[in-house]
């Protein structure tokens, strides 16, 4: 049972904690000859593969480095534009590394605040009054489980789609939160959680879940 990450959203919809647990790293490096047989495009401040999927380089992957030097936005460390390099024949053979892009902290904050109205919408759409909102959301590659406490804090866990007993794990995370975050006198409510004890005990819990399941939690 793989857990990909844990998020905690405060009562007002802000992301107060995020933890990437076990995200598979997808990276492929390959040497190319001229002309490049992959179509690249610059979007959302990243150089993305738009067409020409092959050798583990998939559509949607992001250019990470050129000849070992990392790419930020569309420029290299020395300030040269990536597209200028790719289009010039004299630069080949060229070693390009592609990978799946990881959400930045800012993007995670945006995603968390997007989940908030989605949750409220789901409870509005309910045919019966008083629903719990979204408890679980399943896709082919992952399952999102959400637990909202009576005080309005949401605990969200991304895991393997076959994950069983996610509610138990979320309740345990709630216990950890009430112990290590709230009893820390230097933690103020509604603020991002930066408590090392919380991090380590959460890590231990997730390791335990991955190793021996949720049966003995």
């Amino acid at each position: 049972m793989v857990v990909y990450g844990v998020y905690i959203v405060s009562k007002s919809g802000g992301l107060i904690f995020n933890y990437d647990h076990n995200i598979p790293k997808v990276e492929t490096e390959k040497t190319f000859g001229f002309p490049l047989d992959i179509k690249l495009q610059y979007e959302n401040k990243k150089v993305v593969v738009v067409f020409g999927q092959r050798d583990g380089i998939n559509v949607g992957h992001v250019l990470i480095s050129v000849n070992g030097s990392p790419v930020t936005g569309r420029t290299l460390e020395d300030g040269r534009d990536v597209f200028d390099i790719i289009e010039a024949k004299e630069n080949y053979p060229l070693s390009l590394k592609f990978g799946r892009s990881r959400a930045t902290t800012n993007e995670k904050i945006v995603l968390a605040s997007m989940f908030y109205p989605l949750f409220a919408l789901a409870s509005q759409l309910s045919p019966v009054p008083k629903t719990s909102g979204i408890e679980s959301l399943t896709a082919d590659t992952f399952k999102l489980s959400c637990f909202q406490t009576l005080t309005g804090v949401k605990f969200i866990m991304l895991s393997d789609p076959n994950m069983q007993g996610a509610e138990v794990v979320l309740k345990r995370i709630y216990e950890l939160y009430s112990d290590y975050a709230l009893k820390n006198p230097f933690y103020s409510l509604e603020m991002p959680i930066r408590c090392e004890l919380f991090d380590t005990s959460l890590h231990t819990l997730l390791e335990l879940v991955e190793k021996s399941g949720t049966a003995n939690l």
């Binding site: 009576l150 804090v153 309740k171 709630y174 009430s178 709230l182 409510l189």
Partner: peptide
Amino acid sequence: GVRLIEDFLARTSSGR
């Protein structure tokens, strides 16, 4: 009390 309530809810799993 503001903090203790979370502890109470997490321990007792009481409903609203």
